[in-house]
């Protein structure tokens, strides 16, 4: 059993708190060129995702990777969540998981 390397639930607003750390987020891909994707976070901000292969545009993609800067993530694992996803609940979860219920996640 290992809890030494958690992936933190983040939206764009929370990424700056975890630079250099492992994070997980869901984004909607709007553009994808040669391994670098431009995408919208669940809190409606623009993020750059590196290391992402060609994925269907406008699909929701979960990315697990290292937060490189305030608005970019280097993807290690990605999962295509399809064309519909409840971004509101996910965004609320990000806030809860980094707020009063941090102890359940980190």
């Amino acid at each position: 059993m290992d809890t030494s390397n958690p992936a933190v639930f983040v939206n764009a607003q929370l990424i700056p708190n975890f630079i250099g750390k492992k994070v997980r987020t869901v984004v909607q891909v709007s553009q994808c060129d040669g391994g670098v994707a431009t995408a919208k976070s669940t809190d409606d901000c623009q993020l750059t995702i590196k290391g992402l292969p060609q994925v269907p545009l406008m699909n929701y993609i979960e990315v697990i990777g290292i937060a490189e800067s305030n608005n970019s993530i280097d993807a290690e694992i990605w999962t295509d969540f399809g064309s519909t996803f409840d971004t509101f609940s996910y965004n609320q979860l990000c806030q809860l998981a980094n707020g009063e219920f941090k102890g359940l996640f980190l």
Partner: peptide
């Protein structure tokens, strides 16, 4: 600690993932 599973099934609706964590809270 280990888990002896009696059911394992694939997640098909990905809203189930955040739902599960909200359910934990």
């Amino acid at each position: 600690k280990q888990l002896v599973a009696f059911s394992v099934r694939p997640v098909t609706n990905f809203d189930e993932i955040p739902f599960h964590f909200i359910d934990c809270i």
